[in-house]
Design a protein around this nucleic acid. Structure first.
Length: 751
DNA sequence: TCTTCGCGGTATGGC
DNA sequence: ACCGCGAAGA
């Protein structure tokens, strides 16, 4: 087991080769198969046609993907430029590239080893004109797109209270991922909300084209549309990419599915790797049916199952299996490993989030001193980012170094967004949202009203916001002072734009920060926060400089350096964060996918938090369970799950019961632990009344508004509301507090 | 017309 | 804890 797991990251030791079908190549092909188990080998050697690899957690799927790529080259079935391998995150793409390079050397450069979104962006740059876009379109992140939605809603005089922009955006995003365009959506509308969305959808599309901007969904949707409408474009790419490989197929949505059909439909050389038990992106419109129905969509598809796990102990695997087997949407599958036994899964009950954090920190200290566990082999996972706060505070007090992956992202900081917006505006003068972001930042006295006039003039005349700013005196209603400042701003930006032709990205960025007065305004603030912002901006300049120097080496001709830099950072999020060595890692469960650690803590294992209430309301209990499965299977040797009876979140205290998934752990694989403080307060385990007798779940299900109940700890109360997901709201007589309880689990009784 | 201040509502997950 | 909004002051 150790042998294979270790060699995964190491080079296989062969010199690089260029994939010609020579005798040496054949020899190499054989050697590529040497370290693989039978199903892995079958997947790597698979001939032409569709292939589904159902790869359980830790079964070596990246190994199969990379070895298959190398194998295709070694046998001469593919040349490097014919390979398109798609992952979901940049992190996964980077890892794949490194490992392919280890196997085949420099020829990996000619391959597209990338994410769906950046592959689409790259293809769209080439053909943007087909869809009415310019090739230097800006990519809007969620916040940018939300701003645009708000503008549209405002313009349409939609009441933001009745129809929140976020809800509208979500609805439009959902439609796009189903490849439903504005016209089709309008035709199918069925209520006041949908009517509003239909109107805004149409205007939004229009405004996005005028701003020469695409949101994340557009990248996929536009690529699909382009290939559907222009046969020559489709043929060009499907002929280029004779071999398409997709990682994490269970997370594809409908648009991505359609894209793969268009790309690989003709030749059918499509290999998808995935695991329905790890499908955790339903909220992003991922469709688990894609993987479950793959062999129906592609009747001639071969299916290979990888069930041997090279990561975890049998105890951890059995526990994870036991949990996920409660799901219905899955193929029968059981992970196994050659190593038997292992430490039991430890389930700990703590009184509140502080005690939980102290307990985790204490256990980490104990592991480091008694068992010589290294800190970099330890990770703590939580369901929501907000839970990292208390953990961080506690780790600081314990003087345990840690890093947080995700959370507040570098690129979401206001000053970074401002700087990037300046760059975007220079690359794409039509970009209304970026213009709106920077025109009054630093403060120039161009407020809401003036901005609205500029935007409205641009929309009515059909010219770009940049050109409107260039002749501000023509804008109706704009005051004399505003005309002056806008013109000055336009002049400054024109100068910077001219500079962009020759300057490097870092030079341009520095010039922007100085000449627009941005840095000056920050310095004038004389606060600690402003200092931090300045440092962040310096960091960004440093990143640009690094980009510039790397680029001179690589040299890609399709895009200008500025455009490429912008594309990179708009499609890049926290996963490329510098991974610190020798510290404990904190992250959300979603972020944990694809990673592994010797020791894993999953904190906040409480019903309502995990599974999350919102998820339960949406009917995604199975997805939450998969998330649990993903978290558990990250652990190599030791797995801890903790829950807190009380937790303060967003200023409210919730009273909790352990996650339902804990109840699905086999007793013989679990070790339960309850804190001292826990015993003092005398609470009972979930699902039991004050007498220790389990409550009849059927009884609690019948609760209605107005029912009088008795709670084991809070005493008498009255049901004030019954919510979806088995939740009841109870107002207690003793202190007048209102609490949400899980009817099936709370120690309550009808009176 | 712009800015600042205080209020209330809202709060999963991430390319 | 954060944002957007309205009111009030400059």
């Amino acid at each position: 087991m150790a042998l294979q797991a270790e060699s995964e990251t190491a080079s296989d030791g062969y010199p690089p080769f260029e994939g010609a079908p020579t005798e040496v190549g054949v020899d190499r092909a054989e050697r590529l198969l040497a370290g693989l188990n039978d199903p892995q080998r079958e997947a790597v050697r698979h001939g032409a046609g569709p292939l589904l690899v159902v790869a359980g957690a830790g079964s070596g799927k990246t190994r199969v993907l990379t070895h298959r790529i190398a194998y295709l080259l070694a046998t001469g079935e593919a040349r490097p430029g014919e390979i398109l391998a798609i992952t979901f995150t940049n992190r996964a793409a980077t890892e794949m590239r490194e490992r392919v390079e280890d196997l085949v050397g420099g020829s990996a450069r000619a391959m597209w080893l990338t994410t769906f979104h950046s592959a689409c962006a790259r293809m769209l740059r080439v053909h943007a004109e087909h869809l009415g876009y310019g090739r230097s379109f800006t990519i809007y992140d969620e916040a940018d797109s939300l701003r645009m939605i708000k503008r549209c809603a405002n313009e349409m005089e939609v009441d933001p209270k009745r129809f929140p922009a976020r809800a509208i955006r979500a609805q439009i995003s959902g439609a796009k991922n189903q490849l439903t365009d504005a016209a089709a959506y309008a035709g199918a509308q069925s209520g006041p909300f949908e009517e509003v969305v239909a109107k805004i959808y149409e205007l939004y599309e229009e405004r996005m084209v005028s701003a020469n901007a695409m949101d994340f969904d557009d990248l996929l949707v536009c690529t699909v549309r382009m290939m559907e409408q222009f046969a020559e474009v489709r043929e060009r790419w499907s002929q280029t990419f004779r071999h398409v490989l997709v990682d994490e197929y269970q997370d594809t949505n409908h648009a991505q599915y359609r894209l793969l059909q268009l790309l690989a439909g003709a030749h059918g050389d499509l290999m998808v790797v995935g695991d329905e038990d790890q499908s955790i992106y339903g909220f992003r419109h991922a469709d688990i049916r894609n993987i479950l129905d793959f062999d129906r969509d592609f009747p001639e598809a071969a299916v290979v199952k990888l069930e041997q796990n090279y990561r975890s102990t049998q105890t951890i695997l059995s526990a994870a299996n036991a949990v996920v087997e409660h799901n219905r949407d899955r193929r029968p599958k059981r992970l196994w490993t050659e190593t038997t036994g292992g430490e039991p899964v430890q389930l700990s009950e703590l009184s509140d989030e502080h005690e939980e954090a102290r307990w985790v920190a204490g256990e980490i200290e104990r592991l480091s001193s008694e068992e010589e566990v290294r800190r970099e082999d330890i990770a703590v996972f939580y369901r929501t980012n907000a839970m990292s706060r208390v953990l961080e505070d506690t780790l600081v007090r314990f003087e345990l170094p840690y890093q947080v992956i995700g959370g507040t992202k570098f690129y979401e900081r206001a000053e970074i967004k401002d700087a990037v917006a300046y760059l975007s505006l220079i690359a794409n003068p039509a970009d209304q949202v970026s213009f709106g972001r920077v025109v009054n930042s630093p403060r120039r006295g161009i407020g809401r009203t003036s901005q609205a006039r500029l935007a409205s003039h641009a929309n009515t005349t059909g010219s770009t916001i940049w050109d409107v700013a260039g002749c501000a005196e023509e804008v109706p209603g704009l005051g004399a002072a505003a005309i002056k400042t806008v013109s000055r701003f336009h002049e400054t930006m024109e100068g910077l734009r001219a500079r962009a032709e020759s300057a490097s990205v870092a030079e341009l960025l520095e010039a922007i920060l100085h000449e627009t007065g941005y840095l000056e305004a920050l310095e004038a603030e004389r606060t600690i926060e402003a200092e931090g912002r300045t440092e962040n901006l310096q960091e960004l300049v440093g990143m640009a400089a690094e980009f510039d120097s790397n680029r001179q080496l690589e040299g890609e001709d399709e895009l200008s350096p500025l455009e490429e830099f912008l594309q990179q950072i708009s499609l890049y999020t926290q996963q490329d964060e510098i991974r610190d060595e020798s510290v404990i890692t904190l992250m959300t469960l979603h972020n944990a996918k694809g990673l592994e650690y010797d020791t894993v803590f999953i904190v906040g294992c409480e019903d309502g938090a995990f599974p999350h209430m919102r998820a339960l309301e949406e009917g995604s209990e199975e997805e939450e369970r998969r998330l649990c499965y993903v978290g558990m299977t990250r652990a190599r040797k030791r797995l801890y799950m903790t829950w807190a009876r009380q937790r303060r979140l967003f200023g409210r205290t919730s009273h909790n019961f352990p996650t339902r998934f804990a109840g699905e752990l086999p007793e013989e694989l679990t070790k339960r632990h309850e804190s001292e403080a826990g015993r003092q307060t005398g609470w009972q385990a979930a699902g039991q009344s004050e007498t220790g007798q389990p409550l009849d779940p059927g009884l609690t299900l019948e609760l209605r508004t107005g029912d009088d109940i008795v709670h084991a700890s809070f005493g008498d109360g009255v049901v004030t509301a019954v919510e979806p997901g088995g939740v009841v709201v109870v107002r207690f007589a003793e202190d007048g507090s209102e609490r949400k309880l899980m009817a099936d689990f709370a120690p309550i009784r009808k009176r």
